[in-house]
Every structure is written in C-alpha cells, then in structure tokens.
C-alpha cells in the first residue's frame, strides 16, 4: 500500500531503475546532473523540428539540396545539427517515381540530431518485421496508398549509417517561406511512412 495519498506502490521496473541509479551514484559512476541534462536535451531540444529545417532548406535552395543528397552529414551540420547517432548520415529523396522508407530491423537505429528519439512503433516488432516484406501494406497502415508505378525502397539501418528521407515538397506551396515550409514537415514524412501535405 502507498504510504500517503500522493504516492503509489512502485512497479517492479521502477524499483529496478531506482536501485541501479542509486548504486551508480554512490559508487561515483554517474552524476545525476549529467543524467538530468541529457534527459532535458532529448525531451525538449533535439527533435524532428531540426530535420524539418533541413528539409525546408533543401526545398528552397537547390545547391543545398545537392549537398544534402551527396554529403548528408556535412550538409546537416551546416544547420548546426551534429552529434551522437548522426555521425554518418545518408539522405534519400522521395519523388513521384521512388518512395523511400526507413527501418532498423535489428534494433532502433535512428538519426537523433535531426529526428530526435524514435517513436515506440519504430522500435517495435510489428513495424520492424513487416516493412521489409510488405512495405506497401505497412504504408497503408499509415494512410499512404502509393501508385503501383512508384518504386518503394526500404532502407534498413546498419549500426553505423543513419538514414533520413527528404520528402516531396507538396504542390501549391510555391508562395510559402522557408519557415512556413518547415512547419509542414512531419517526423513520419522524414521516416518515409507518410508524405508531407500542405
């Protein structure tokens, strides 16, 4: 039973985490301030808005787009997005002819500097198992029906390379500014399970 009205019994996993953390602190192996700073960074500062800036820049600046597709890591770093899980970036372009979609069948490889931490579904068995054998069926579960004439390419991450999709710029957005374009770009479009809509 909980000892007061605003506490509740700890779950087994909560107990394991508290035990591990407290022992690591006592042994001087971790500093809680460093742990807190990392949580704050990946909860509040790093996320798909970064990738959306990259995509919008590529849509408005053909020279940047060319650099992004040929030297992804360096082009992304031009906008300040670098670091862990983004050291070796490959950006693949979606067009009416080719639709790219990303997975990590073995675990959870994902481009943290541009997309943040991956959603649960990306790391889970249903997506990882099926997108490589039935990509069109998986895309339909995300509401995306592609014409038969569109080739689908599935990129399975290695433990080193991280992929990101450059989605198609939606029609009717010629008048929009780079900031307005960035606001349209979604995480799922940069994984390749949806398109960007205006």
């Amino acid at each position: 039973m909980a000892s007061s009205a605003h506490t509740r019994p700890l779950s087994e996993v909560e107990i394991r985490v508290k035990a591990l953390e407290s022992l690591l602190v006592e042994k001087g192996l971790i500093d809680l301030a460093a742990v807190d700073a990392l949580i704050d960074k990946y909860e509040h500062k790093v996320g798909p808005r970064n990738g959306a800036r990259v995509v919008a820049r590529a849509w408005v600046d053909p020279a940047y787009k060319a650099r992004l597709l040929s030297h992804g890591t360096e082009a992304i770093a031009e906008l300040g997005y670098t670091g862990m899980q983004g050291e070796d970036m490959v950006v693949v372009e979606n067009t009416p002819e080719v639709h790219n979609v990303l997975v990590c069948t073995l675990c959870s490889c994902y481009p943290w500097p541009t997309l943040g931490l991956p959603p649960v579904w990306y790391k889970s068995a249903p997506y990882r198992s099926r997108v490589v054998i039935d990509p069109r069926g998986v895309l339909q579960e995300f509401g995306l029906q592609l014409p038969e004439s569109t080739e689908v390419r599935v990129w399975d991450s290695t433990s080193e390379v991280r992929y990101m999709v450059l989605p198609e710029r939606p029609p009717g957005t010629e008048h929009l500014s780079e900031d307005e374009l960035a606001a349209l770009v979604t995480r799922d479009a940069m994984i390749g399970v949806t398109k960007v809509s205006a």
Binding site: V17, A34, D36
Partner: peptide, 9 residues
C-alpha cells in the same frame, strides 16, 4: 532515468 543514464554509464 534509463535513457539519461546511458551516456554517463
């Protein structure tokens, strides 16, 4: 907590 521990550990 588990996520934040990774790099320091």
């Amino acid at each position: 907590r588990v996520f934040g521990m990774f790099l320091p550990v």
